[in-house]
Amino acid sequence: MSLDTTTLLAILAMAVVTYVTRIAGLFVADRLVLTGRAKAAFDAIPPAVLVAVIAPTALTTGWAEAIAAAVTALAAFRLPLLGTVAVGVVSVVVLRSLL
């Protein structure tokens, strides 16, 4: 097992940056009192962030992925989380073999 010094430094830099982003929100949160549009914007953070992360895979990779994403979204309103993941994985495998 090897641990390269430059690699270790890069990992540490990534770790420090990530931890800082994780606690940075704590410094602003208590000063936020939100109403109206600002509150709507704040409440939209969770779905907006999650969707932005997966949008390229779901929408622009290919038809198999796009259709599988749509099927998964339909399943997501009816099934528990694990069932949703299973539907997504199975449908992408089936669609990739068909398309």
Binding site: D43, P46, V53, A58, A69, G88
Partner: peptide, 30 residues
């Protein structure tokens, strides 16, 4: 990973504002 995130997003419901948020975020990100 993608399917997991879709499931998590669905947990936030389908109000008009949420649907608009999801559509715009997905479109711009893509």
């Amino acid at each position: 990973f993608t399917a997991l995130f879709i499931g998590l997003v669905a947990g936030f419901g389908r109000s008009r504002v949420t649907l608009i948020t999801v559509a715009v975020s997905a479109g711009v990100a893509a």
